[in-house]
């Protein structure tokens, strides 16, 4: 495997780290979704660079398109949830969401 692949994977890992850091520390629900988006970017990068590595970028391209479509559906659902939550709690803070425990 080429070093090129390794380099891109390293950057994908950095993007994943940023996303997970955001998920772990941020409070704002929309910020959390942004974190998920950043993770998704890292993953698309990993997919495409794997395709390049195998000289088969067309396949991964189609995978990325499917991935993006799914991501959009997921995001739409999540945003709808956030708006509903906002109506209930009048807040966008994740710390309001601790009713269920134990």
């Amino acid at each position: 495997m080429s070093n090129h692949w390794l380099l891109n994977m390293g950057f994908a890992a950095a993007l994943l780290f940023i996303g997970i850091f955001c998920l772990l520390t941020m409070k704002n629900l929309i910020k959390l979704l942004i974190g998920i988006e950043i993770m998704a970017k890292g993953i698309t990068l990993a997919l495409i660079t794997s395709g390049v590595e195998r000289h088969n970028v067309m396949v991964t391209q189609s995978l990325v398109i499917t991935f993006i479509v799914i991501e959009v559906s997921l995001l739409a659902t999540a945003l709808a949830l956030i708006i509903n939550i906002y109506r209930h709690t009048k807040s966008l803070s994740i710390s309001k969401l601790t009713n269920l425990k134990g």
Binding site: I94, S95, L97, T98, N99, L100, K101, G102
Partner: peptide
């Protein structure tokens, strides 16, 4: 007690 409801 550990299942305290915090997402993080």
């Amino acid at each position: 007690f550990a299942h305290n409801g915090y997402y993080a």
